[in-house]
Simulated scan of single mutants.
Amino acid sequence: MGPWFSWKALALGLLLTGTALAADRININTADASTLQEGLTNVGPRKAQAIVAYRRQHGPFIRVEDLTRVKGIGTATVERNRRRMTVGARLAPTETPPRRAVTTPVPRR
């Protein structure tokens, strides 16, 4: 088994490790407070509850950076956990949004 085999094994190992890390990300739009607390650095019970409460009130996060809108979560916490978080796949809306009424000008006299 020459050096070619060891390079293949190394490449395969790195590929599998990257796939495993991507699968372990926490979806901040669907995770409960317990999962957020256990999986994110510097996120305790209060911050985890604040994330869930903010999400319920304001809807899902569009970007991971939007997490800084939650009281008690700063950019340092987001940067520390960036590789551990995801917002999930954004789906296209199923319905077309309602049209806005077009106003017609009133004739002047």
Rank of each mutant, 00 (worst) to 15 (best):
A92L: 08
G44I: 02
D66Y: 03
R82F: 05
A22K: 06
K47H: 05
P45W: 03
A50P: 07
Y54S: 02
R108T: 11
G44A: 05
D66R: 07
A92T: 12
G2D: 11
R82E: 04
L14P: 09
P97R: 09
T77F: 05
R25N: 01
T104N: 09
T68A: 03
T75D: 13
R69L: 14
L10R: 12
L91G: 06
I28H: 01
R83T: 11
V43W: 03
W7S: 15
A101G: 04
E65L: 10
N81I: 02
K8G: 15
R80F: 09
A101P: 15
T86W: 00
D32T: 03
K8V: 09
A9I: 12
R90F: 10
T35K: 07
K8I: 10
P97G: 04
V70I: 00
R90M: 11
S34R: 10
R25P: 01
W7R: 14
R83N: 14
G2W: 07
W4L: 14
T96S: 14
G88Y: 00
T94F: 10
R63F: 11
H58D: 01
I51P: 03
W4K: 15
P60A: 03
V106R: 15
A101S: 13
G88S: 02
A23C: 08
P98E: 06
L36D: 00
R84M: 05
D32A: 04
Q57H: 07
V106Q: 14
T75L: 12
Q49N: 12
E38N: 12
E79C: 09
S6A: 13
D32K: 03
T19E: 12
G59E: 02
P60I: 06
I28Y: 00
N42Q: 15
R99K: 15
G59R: 00
V87K: 01
N81M: 02
R109W: 06
P45V: 04
L16H: 01
R83L: 13
A20Y: 14
K8H: 10
T103N: 14
R25K: 08
Q57P: 10
A92I: 07
E79Y: 04
L12W: 12
A50L: 02
L16Q: 06
E38S: 14
